[in-house]
């Protein structure tokens, strides 16, 4: 069977293993998360169950909020307050180096798996708009990390049951959520660069060396932080939603 010169290079790949499994799992998990958060973000109800505020709605910036964090926006805002803040975590995740790897593979199929051909003919990578915007990931990092302050505030508030210290399942979930989100932020590639990676020599710069080494250690598990924090954010919202809807009751001990 003779083939042409072009065919020699572009003959079908020879992978016989389950190369499609990883992209499929990513499509399913990421897809479910996106669908769920669109629903949960737009519905505009059931995002607060005292003292728990859903992380999708925090900080709650509208005066119409059930539990406003900072009522910066007047009562004229009729839409879901989640819309006011969704851009920040969304931009952070969309421009994240790890998520880029995953959605370019799973959704763009460029490539779907290693040594499996690209789905499309032309390819210019991140050299053109809109993908050029990926280069501003560090700004997304700064905004998303700033929002973490509110989430930590909410997490501590989740242990305050009408002035009494207590621990509910929701308190633990909210604490875990913000801890994972912080891990995800602190393991960011851009942060690793900003705290010291830009240097060529660390000698005599021990603080930046220590920060950079620390960021390196966290960064090695960036993918794990990315997935666990994603799943826990959605789970936290879902849990609070189900409490607010009266489907679940929150096990708690109040002192």
């Amino acid at each position: 069977m003779a083939t042409t010169a072009v065919d020699v290079r572009h003959r079908p790949h020879e992978r016989k293993d389950l190369w499609w499994l990883e992209p499929t799992v990513i499509v399913v998990v990421l897809g479910l998360f996106v669908l769920y958060s669109i629903y949960a973000g737009l519905v505009g109800t059931n995002y607060y169950y005292d003292p728990y505020l859903s992380p999708l709605y925090s900080p709650c910036l509208s005066a119409n909020c059930v539990h406003p964090t900072l009522p910066l926006i007047g009562t004229y805002w009729n839409l879901s307050p989640a819309i006011l803040i969704v851009a920040f975590p969304l931009a952070f995740r969309v421009t994240c180096y790890y998520y880029r790897r995953s959605y370019y593979r799973a959704f763009f199929w460029s490539p779907p798996a290693c040594a499996v051909p690209d789905a499309r003919k032309g390819y210019a990578g991140e050299t053109r708009f809109p993908f050029l915007i990926q280069n501003l990931h560090r700004y997304a990092l700064i905004f998303a990390t700033a929002l973490l302050i509110f989430l930590w505030w909410d997490a501590f508030g989740a242990f305050n049951f009408n002035g009494h210290f207590g621990v509910g399942f929701g308190s633990i979930l909210m604490l875990a959520n913000v801890a994972l989100l912080s891990g995800y932020s602190l393991s960011c590639h851009s942060l690793r660069y900003l705290v010291g990676g830009y240097l060529d020599s660390f000698h005599g710069k021990s603080l930046r060396f220590r920060l950079w080494s620390w960021a390196n250690t966290l960064n090695a598990r960036h993918a794990r932080w990315a997935w666990t924090s994603l799943i826990v954010v959605a789970s936290t919202d879902l849990y609070i939603r189900l409490l607010a809807m009266g489907v679940l009751t929150d096990p708690r001990i109040v002192f």
Partner: peptide, 14 residues
Amino acid sequence: GLGYCNITKCCTEV
């Protein structure tokens, strides 16, 4: 052409 890389990490894998 660094911008062409879409960091899909196959280089690291192999």
